[in-house]
Simulated assay, not measured.
Amino acid sequence: MATPAAEALPIAPGENRVAFQGMDWVAYQQMKALLNERTRARLTYDRGTLEITMPSELHEFYARLIERFIVILVVELGLKIKTLGSTTLDREDLERGAEPDNGYYIQHQPQVAGRPINLDTDPPPDLVVEVDINHTDIDKNALYATMGVPEFWRFNGKVWHIYQLENGAYAERDRSPTFPIISKDELYQFLATCQQNEVEAELNLRSWLRELS
């Protein structure tokens, strides 16, 4: 499988973001209820700071394709998955909440299968993905580390960062702890091919994975 550099990907127009300071938990919940009914906005809350994001077309393109990339890996590697999408991950005890681009239970899928999750008693998702092209006022690494998310992927439209939780903080890794068989180049290749032909990109990735098994 060819492995182009990240520079092969097009420059992405960024998301529209607005941040509010000094907003308590009750006000955050009220804003979330209002916006979730009327808009496609994504909300992230961190101890008084509320950030509202309106994703761009290319933001959604990357987010949905990274999700497809993950599902292909899970299927071809014989794993299990529970997909959360942008389900709100609220932790009032931490004064933090987020609606990530993608969230998944993989290692803990059997523990949460077939029912709604409850973060008061269930573990956090095993893997969370965020596409952040424009600057964000929220320290998302600290946010998801505090929530205890074991693996966090960030993609800025050019570069893929993989973080693994260690001693309460994230350490960057060259390969995913969940999918050590793949490198960053495989994702870059997949996204680059998807620019022209998503079906071809999926078939190529599945074929490559089957050749490895």
Rank of each mutant, 00 (worst) to 15 (best):
A2H: 08
A5R: 12
E7I: 11
E7N: 11
A8I: 15
P10K: 09
I11W: 04
A12G: 00
A12Y: 09
P13W: 00
P13I: 01
G14L: 07
G14Y: 03
N16L: 13
V18W: 10
F20L: 15
Q21L: 10
D24C: 02
Q29N: 13
Q30N: 12
K32E: 15
A33T: 11
A33R: 15
N36V: 03
R38D: 09
R40S: 12
R42C: 02
L43R: 08
D46Y: 09
E51T: 10
M54E: 10
P55A: 08
L58I: 08
L58Q: 14
H59G: 10
A63W: 05
E67W: 00
E67A: 15
F69L: 06
V71L: 15
I72F: 04
V74E: 02
L77M: 12
I81R: 09
G85N: 10
T88N: 12
L89H: 08
R91F: 14
D93T: 10
D93I: 03
R96N: 01
G97I: 04
A98I: 09
N102V: 04
G103C: 13
Y104H: 03
Q111M: 10
A113R: 13
P116C: 01
P116W: 02
N118K: 11
L119H: 08
T121E: 13
P124A: 11
P125M: 04
D126M: 04
L127V: 06
V129G: 06
E130K: 01
V131E: 05
D132G: 07
I133P: 10
I133W: 10
N134W: 00
T136G: 07
T136A: 15
D137T: 12
I138P: 05
K140M: 05
M147W: 00
M147S: 07
V149S: 05
W153Q: 03
R154V: 11
N156F: 04
G157T: 04
W160L: 15
I162D: 06
L165K: 06
L165Q: 03
Y170T: 04
D174L: 10
F179N: 01
I181L: 15
I182W: 02
I182H: 06
D185M: 06
D185A: 15
F190H: 08
F190K: 07
Q195W: 02
A201C: 09
L203T: 11
L203V: 14
L203C: 00
R206H: 06
W208N: 08
E211S: 13
